[in-house]
């Protein structure tokens, strides 16, 4: 087996007394689609924020391609080839859809002072951005103001932007939520095609059917701890996982 692309070791993040993530460790192998699942508040998004550098871990280590990556700031993580989407979508509201994508295309420029002075309003750049929009099915909306799009389109816009940044690893935080059935099918298709191009995908997903169908392996979090890890069929039968999900449900049904 090849070396892990992402190696997370005993990762913890506390907010005051709240252990949002407590000594969680797992690997993401190059080329796989790994699902991070768990009930609400399990610590999934916190885990993404630690990987992408938004938070500094309270303890633990993150290795990317064999190099320490924890404590690296978000823009530097991006320059390592890690792209991410946000659970709460974050479009550049007053910019157009294609301009949103162009911002992500600029990743090859932002680190070089000499490059940031050239223009993004060139035919070549815009055409490439349009190609990316075509890939996620947003080409027709290229000139629309991003802030005015419905959620389904914004999720796709987020993926388009993340794809231009994450040529090694893509972090998708609930990209399927709020989508209609046809959109879900299209997006599954897209994620598989992304993996075909050699990009590793780590995704957070609440829709079990989607997670089971799409992921090679799953990591299950609950209350900040890892409670299971394995292939979808194994996870489906895992006692702890069933308890975590059902227990929650019964508790909320009783309430």
């Amino acid at each position: 087996m090849s070396q892990a692309l992402l190696d997370i070791q005993e990762l913890s993040k506390y907010f005051g007394g709240l252990k949002a993530l407590d000594q969680v460790g797992f690997n993401v192998m190059g080329g796989e689609i790994l699902g991070l699942i768990g009930p609400n508040g399990a610590g999934k998004t916190v885990c993404f924020n630690l990987i992408s550098g938004v938070y500094r871990p309270t303890a633990g280590k993150i290795y990317f391609n064999g190099q320490r990556m924890d404590g690296t700031s978000p823009h530097q993580v991006a320059h390592k080839g890690v792209g991410r989407t946000f659970q709460i979508v974050k479009p550049f509201g007053t910019l157009s859809v294609v301009e949103n994508v162009l911002v992500a295309k600029g990743i090859t420029k932002y680190n070089r002072f000499s490059r940031i002075w050239s223009t993004w309003k060139s035919k070549a750049e815009i055409n490439e951005a349009l190609e990316m929009l075509e890939r996620v099915g947003l080409k027709d909306l290229a000139d629309r103001q991003a802030g005015l799009l419905p959620l389904g389109n914004l999720r796709r816009l987020e993926i388009a932007r993340a794809l231009l940044v994450g040529h090694k690893l893509l972090l998708l935080d609930e990209s399927f939520s709020g989508l209609r059935h046809e959109e879900i099918v299209q997006l599954e298709e897209l994620i598989r095609s992304i993996r075909e191009t050699g990009i590793t995908v780590l995704l957070i997903e609440h829709n079990m059917r989607v997670a089971m169908g799409l992921c090679d392996r799953l990591v299950v979090l609950d209350h900040g701890s890892k409670i299971a890890e394995g292939r979808p069929q194994e996870i489906q039968q895992n006692e702890k996982v069933i308890e975590a999900y059902l227990g929650r449900k019964e508790a909320s049904d009783a309430a």
Partner: peptide, 13 residues
């Protein structure tokens, strides 16, 4: 527009 999203695209705030 959105600082954290910009940072995730390699822009140093």
């Amino acid at each position: 527009e959105e600082e954290s999203a910009a940072a995730s695209m390699g822009i140093s705030p």
